[in-house]
Every structure is written in C-alpha cells, then in structure tokens.
Simulated assay, not measured.
Amino acid sequence: MAAENTSQVTEAHPMEGGDGPNSYAKNSTCQRDGVDAAIELMSKAIAEKLDIEISPSNTFRIADLGCSVGPNTFLAVEIILEAVKPKFQSQGLNSQILEFHVFFNDHTSNDFNMLFKTLPQNRQYYAAGVPGSFYGRLFPNASIHIAHSSYAIQWLSRVPKAVVDSNSPAWNKGRIHYSNSPDEVLRAYETQYTEDMECFLHARAQEIAYGGLMILNFPGPPNGTPHSDASPNVIFQLLGSSLMDLVRKGVVSEEKVDSLNIPTYCRSPQELVAVVERNGCFSIEIMVDLPLPLVHDPILMAQLITSHMRAGMEGDLRKQFGEEILDDLFDLYRKKCVEHASTLDSGKAVNFLVVLRRKAD
C-alpha cells in the first residue's frame, strides 16, 4: 500500500549545511549537551519500557526524526543501539544475529550529502535517508521500533497564516515571533502547534510497533512560565529587535520584517500531555527536565547563542534579506545578548525528555 497522503502543507527551514564556520555541524554543541544529558534516562527507558517482538528477519528499526546534518544524530543513534543490545541479550537473543536499520529523516532541503559524508565508518547499522516532513506519514505500518527526535519538534510545520495577514487581529507587525506579542498572535501559534502535534502523533501511532518507544528531547518553558519570560523565546525576540534596528538605519525594509515570522513553538510539559492524552495511542512513561551546563560568562554565552542562532536561521534570513546584512545583523544580535545576559541566564528555559510507549489498540 502506498504511503498515506496528507493535506498538511509544510515549510522547510533547514539548518545551515556544509562544514563551514557558520554551519550547524560546527555550531550545535548546545543540542549535543541535550543529547548527552539524556543518555542515562534513554538507556533506562529502553531497558525497562521497550516491549516488542522482533520479526523473523531479526531487523530492529530506528528512526531519527529531524536529524539535520550531524554529528548529534549519530550520537543519539549510538546511545539507542548500545541500550537495545543488552535488552535482547537478556531475552536470549544473540545481539550478533540482530541487525539494525537506521532511518535518518529530515526535509528534502536538508544537507543529506553532508550527513552521509560524515556517517561513522565503524557504524553497526545499515543507514538510509528518508526525506519528508515528520508531520505526515514516513514509514509503513508498525515498522519502527524506536523513533527518536531531538531539538526538532519545536519547529512547526509552517508559519501560522494569520500572523502574516495584515487584515487579521493576529498580524504580528514589527515582530518575528510570538514572544512578547499580542494574545491573538500567541493563540495563532498555539493553534498551529496543536494541529501539528495531532498530525505528528497520528502518523507515529501508525508507524511505531506496539510496545515500541518514541523518545522526544526538546526545549521549552516550565509549566506556568509566561512565554515572554522563557529564554528560548527571548533569543528570538532579540533577533527581531536587531532586525528592527536595521529598519531604523534604513538597511532593511519594515515590510520584509513584517512578513518574516519564525515557525517555532516551545511547549510546556502540560501542553504536550494534553495532546498525547487526546491522541490516546501512547502512554507517557517518562517526562523529566534535563539539567544542562550553564555558561555564566556573558560574553561567552552571547557568542555561543549567536553562533547557534546563525547556524539555525542563516538560510531563512539570507532568503528574506540577502547575504549582505548577515554579518552586521549578528554583530548587533551578539551585543544584545550580552546586554540581556541576566535574562537569558535566569533559568527559565528547560530541556525536557519525554518517552512515549505505543499502546496496543
């Protein structure tokens, strides 16, 4: 049967490819810290919660959703493999008989060439690329045993339409994100998030085998934290402020800023719980916040945030404003991060690890 069609219209916002100084491959240590912090809990979840029967082919299938270009995706896959092997050895299955097939998924515009050029040479799995949005179907029914996604599900499938409609109450004029925006803008983002996560869970419910796991690692605010106070949102607010500074200098047109909105939404745990419970196909086995190393030097922290933001946003900004503004923009942005260091270091950002188990119907 062919892959299920979906009416979901998705937008691609790939990380900066290649291995240059501004590339995601060279500027994703914060994301790696998130994977490192999850190692023990991921291994424990696999040992205690995974409950599947391997098919006669003895092939164990892993999907990394939103893999980008590496190297963090390879680390996550290795963690999963090293946890799965003893799990099946304890059940009497020789791990040398077990074969692993890993599917690296991202949008078609992702730099898959970079990803495959840097695949670990001593890997213990067969690798395949699966292009497409994870808000739709990607795999056959019940074919995946563990799905993993790290620092990806905060990206929405698209910018909410209302926030770029000048006739809408949710028009986000002068801003590029919902942080510190009117309530109508926030509601538009919340609605888009809910729709997207319903599509995400519906697709994974069909693809993950009963007893299989979905491991999600993502940034977000603690329950009850105003969106405008959450550090992941503040960093986008500062980028928008930097763009408006360039508008005032006559470097960038205000209309181009008005038409740019970043389709990310940092959810709180209670928001995710509500969507999972409404879907009904998964049980929540683990939901914890992950401690991450803090950088208290304002200058070092500002440089780190700036380099990571540029790796994530350079493609969109280049398309919207042209190459020539990027150095000036990110120099302004770095200075703003230094000025707001106390806010960014306030602890109102958390990384969450959530482990879901596919329930039997």
Rank of each mutant, 00 (worst) to 15 (best):
V77L: 03
L81C: 15
C30M: 15
S55L: 05
I46S: 04
M114P: 07
I176W: 09
G347I: 05
I153C: 11
T118W: 04
L329D: 07
M313R: 12
S149R: 01
G250I: 01
A162S: 12
P291G: 09
R137V: 07
N113F: 04
E198D: 09
T118P: 06
V257H: 12
S90D: 06
Y210M: 03
D361K: 11
L332C: 07
T306R: 14
C199L: 07
M1H: 11
S181F: 00
P140K: 08
D64L: 03
P221G: 12
M197K: 14
A25C: 05
A152K: 03
A147F: 09
C199D: 12
P232L: 02
N122P: 08
P14E: 10
N122H: 08
F60C: 03
L332K: 07
C199T: 00
L329N: 11
G224I: 03
I46P: 07
T29Y: 04
Y193H: 14
E190Q: 14
E198W: 00
K117H: 15
F236V: 07
I284D: 04
A162K: 06
I176C: 12
E195N: 13
L290C: 13
Y135F: 13
A38R: 00
A360T: 07
E40M: 05
G66L: 04
L213D: 13
V354D: 00
Q8R: 09
S133V: 01
G322V: 06
D345L: 04
K44F: 12
C281T: 02
E53C: 15
A25N: 01
Q303N: 13
